[in-house]
C-alpha cells in the first residue's frame, strides 16, 4: 500500500515536471499577449534536439573509445533542447508579431510542424542506431537521473522528495523565478503591460515587439526543456512516435488556464494533474474496479479540473484571475 502510494507520487512528479516546464513557458509567452498554441510543437522540437545532441555526442565518444564527460552529457542536450524550443518560438514570433498572422492558426501549425519534424528525425535516429528502440543515450540519461547520494538513507522522506534528477527541481525553481520576475521586477511590469494593453505600453516607450519576441522565444525554450525531461528521464532515452508529448503539451496549455496565469500555482497544479492522470493505475487501492471505460473517464479529470477553474473564475469575475487582456490579438501601432 505505502509502496504503491510512493510510486504514484513519483510518477505524478515525473509527469508534472514535463508539463510544468511547458506551463511556465506558456505563462511567460501569454503574459506578452501571445497565445502560443504551438507549445506541444516546441516541446517536440526541444525533445528531438536534445535526443539528437545526446546521441551524436555519445556516438562520437564511442567511436573515439573514450567515456562521455558527465558535464558535457548535461550541457549538450540541455542547450540543444532550449535552442530547439526557442527556434519554435522564433518561428511563431516572426509570423505573428512581424507578419501579424493569426495566432491561433500559427500556433496549431507550429504544433503540427514540431510533431512532424520530431518524428521525422526520431525515425532517422532510430535508423542510424540500427532499428526502433536501439537509440542508446544511457550515459546522458543516467547523468540526468542522478539523485543526491544520501537518498537511500532518508527513507520515505527521501523517496518522496529527493529521488529525482535535477530537472525536477529546476522546474520548481523556474516557476518561482518567473513569479518573482513578473511580480517584482520592472521588466516584468513592462511585460505584463504589453500583454494587457500594448498601445499603452507602446505610448510609454516600451518596445512591444522586442518584449513579444523575447518572452515567446524564452518561453518556448523553457517548454523545450519539458521535451528534454521527457526524453532523458521520463522515457529514459528512447524515441517513439506515440504522440505522448503532444498530449502532455496540451495539458500544459490547459494548466496555464488552471493556474490563472500565476507560475506558483503551476507547481502544485502540475503535480495534481500528474496524480489525476495516473489515478487509473492506483484507483484499485481504493477498491474501485478498473475497466477500459473507467480508465478513459479518469484520464479526463485534468481537463475537467481546468473547466471547473474556468467556471469558478468567471463566476468570481475577479480581474486579477483573467487572461491578459490583449491575449491573442495582434498589435499594430497605426491601426485605427
Amino acid at each position: 500500500m505505502i509502496d504503491s502510494i510512493i510510486q504514484w507520487i513519483q510518477s505524478a512528479v515525473a509527469f508534472g515536471t514535463v508539463i510544468m516546464f511547458g506551463c511556465c513557458g506558456e505563462i511567460l509567452t501569454e503574459k506578452s499577449g501571445n497565445l502560443n498554441l504551438g507549445i506541444p510543437g516546441a516541446m517536440y522540437m526541444g525533445g528531438i534536439a536534445s535526443l539528437a545532441g545526446a546521441f551524436f555526442y555519445e556516438n562520437a565518444c564511442l567511436t573515439a573509445g573514450s567515456t562521455p564527460n558527465a558535464i558535457l552529457c548535461i550541457l549538450i542536450p540541455f542547450l540543444c533542447a532550449f535552442a530547439g524550443g526557442a527556434l519554435g518560438g522564433l518561428i511563431f514570433s516572426f509570423l505573428t508579431t512581424t507578419l501579424r498572422a493569426n495566432q491561433n492558426v500559427t500556433g496549431l501549425t507550429l504544433t503540427i510542424f514540431g510533431a512532424g519534424l520530431a518524428n521525422f528525425f526520431g525515425g532517422s535516429l532510430n535508423k542510424l542506431a540500427g532499428g526502433v528502440g536501439q537509440i542508446s543515450i544511457s550515459n546522458t540519461s543516467e547523468t540526468y537521473r542522478t539523485t543526491v547520494p544520501f537518498v537511500k538513507s532518508t527513507g520515505f522522506f527521501g523517496e518522496i522528495f529527493l529521488s529525482y534528477g535535477f530537472l525536477v527541481y529546476l522546474a520548481i525553481a523556474i516557476a518561482v523565478i518567473l513569479s518573482i520576475f513578473l511580480k517584482r521586477t520592472k521588466a516584468g511590469l513592462n511585460l505584463r503591460a504589453v500583454g494587457e494593453n500594448p498601445a499603452t505600453a507602446d505610448a510609454a516607450g516600451i518596445n512591444v515587439s522586442k518584449y513579444k519576441y523575447l518572452s515567446t522565444c524564452i518561453g518556448c525554450g523553457i517548454a523545450g526543456l519539458g521535451g528534454l525531461y521527457y526524453v532523458v528521464d521520463y522515457t529514459k532515452g528512447t524515441w517513439n512516435n506515440a504522440g505522448t508529448i503532444e498530449t502532455l503539451g496540451w495539458l500544459a496549455v490547459a494548466l496555464v488556464i488552471f493556474t490563472t496565469w500565476k507560475p506558483l500555482n503551476a507547481i502544485w497544479g502540475s503535480y495534481l494533474f500528474g496524480f489525476l492522470y495516473w489515478l487509473y493505475l492506483y484507483i484499485g487501492l481504493f477498491g474501485v474496479e478498473t475497466t477500459r471505460s473507467t480508465i478513459s473517464l479518469i484520464q479526463m479529470l485534468p481537463y475537467l479540473a481546468t473547466m471547473l477553474v474556468l467556471i469558478l473564475t468567471s463566476i468570481r469575475k475577479k480581474k486579477e484571475n483573467q487572461p491578459p487582456e490583449s491575449l491573442g490579438l495582434p498589435y499594430f501601432r497605426e491601426e485605427r
Binding site: 513592462n190 494587457e196 494593453n197 499603452t200 505610448a203 516607450g205
Partner: peptide
C-alpha cells in the same frame, strides 16, 4: 516623443486597467 519632453493625454486613456496608479507611471523605460 518622451525624449523631446512631449507628453500627450489621449482621448482613449493609455492606462493598464489591472495596474495601480503607481505601476502605470513606473511603466516603460526612461
Amino acid at each position: 516623443a518622451y525624449d523631446l519632453n512631449i507628453g500627450m493625454i489621449h482621448q482613449h486613456f493609455k492606462l493598464v486597467d489591472l495596474f495601480t496608479a503607481a505601476e502605470n507611471i513606473l511603466l516603460g523605460t526612461h
